[in-house]
Amino acid sequence: MKMKSARIHAFGDASVIRYDDVARPRPALGEVLVRVAATSFNPTEAALRAGLLQAFLPVALPYTLGWDVAGTVAEIGAGTEGFAVGDRVVGRLDSAGAAAEYVSAPGALLVPAPTSVPLTHAAALPVAGLTAWQAVFEHGKVTAGQRVLVNGAGGGVGSFVTQLAKHAGAEVIATASARSAQTVRRHGADRVIDYTDMPVAAALDRPVDALLNLVPLSPHDAVALASAVRPGGLIVSIATPVEPPAETGVTAIHMVARNDVAHLAALVELLDAGKVTLDISASHRLADLADIHRLSEAGRIRGKVVIIP
């Protein structure tokens, strides 16, 4: 049987995304076949599509996009336990492939989908949520009473970082543009700094305990932002490494998120308990994926965008 799939056959601009008719996969040993309800767009996929990640994330072409998946189990491969046809699942796929009508996924990467949100919305959770969880809890070790600066709170990862840091009991100061400020406050930020209006460090009345940086920075801006952290504090960056002067005693961590189903299950639990919400800014069809890439590269996407086959 055939299905639609969004693939790249070469690296380049968004025009290299093609919508192919391909054979529906069959689940291999340890896999399940998922009927995809939705995937979601992550800006890193635009960098992958452009060929900018080949040095440390090489992929073979043609390559089907889509790391996030939410859907329903349609078939179970040999040796796969703990699933039944019809189960609603969510997960991050290390080899991508969710920008399609069906995808075969290792059962070990999937957890039960949240029950409190539409299944299509659950696709916004895995990549961005895991990145945020590990930035806040694993690397940032955010605890109650700390002052935490979230740089780039208006993006998909930023929405989760803000909520998780607040859930941990921190005082959260967030940077965002005017168009995102209201949403960032709703996610729990105690104060929002418009980074387009003034330098972030200059807007603070005193240094913060930790900086969670979620956006690319110029060398000049990285140095300026590092000055916002108190001596002996902590910087965690998922984008540009932010290196403070050695004499400050500030610890700097440049992290890359990893797949962890225990963390994902914990996020699902928080979502279903109403302690975390999803910031879905738009929903589009698979045939619009190239346009989503273009909008992202133009800086015109806020929050998470889900893609429905």
Results as ranks from 00 to 15, higher is better:
D291E: 05
A37F: 12
A228N: 05
G140R: 01
Q134E: 06
K304H: 09
P207A: 02
A135V: 04
V136E: 03
L57T: 14
E171K: 11
E31H: 02
P245F: 01
S283Q: 14
G30I: 14
T64P: 08
G30V: 11
R185D: 05
A202Y: 12
G233F: 01
V172P: 02
V34R: 02
A174S: 07
D190R: 05
A96M: 04
T277W: 02
A176D: 08
V223G: 07
L119R: 00
L264T: 09
A96W: 04
V150Y: 09
I253N: 05
D68Y: 10
V59E: 02
I307R: 02
V90N: 01
V32F: 13
D68S: 13
H293D: 11
P219M: 12
P58F: 06
I76N: 13
G145Q: 11
V127Y: 10
A226F: 01
V111P: 15
K304L: 10
V142R: 00
Y19V: 13
H187T: 08
P114G: 08
S237H: 03
S40R: 05
P216V: 15
H284S: 14
R35C: 03
Q134A: 05
G152W: 06
H284W: 13
V59L: 06
R294A: 12
P207E: 05
L295K: 09
D288Y: 01
R285V: 00
G86N: 12
R191T: 10
L278N: 04
F160Q: 13
R35Y: 06
V236K: 00
G155R: 05
S15F: 02
S116K: 09
L234T: 09
K2G: 08
G97D: 03
P207I: 05
D260H: 12
A153R: 03
A38C: 02
G51D: 03
R206S: 13
P114F: 05
D260A: 09
G140F: 03
T131K: 09
V192L: 07
A84R: 12
V36D: 04
D291T: 03
Q163D: 12
A37L: 11
V268C: 15
H220W: 06
R88M: 09
I76E: 12
L53V: 06
S40L: 01
S5Q: 15
G86E: 14
R185Y: 02
G86S: 14
Y19H: 15
R230L: 08
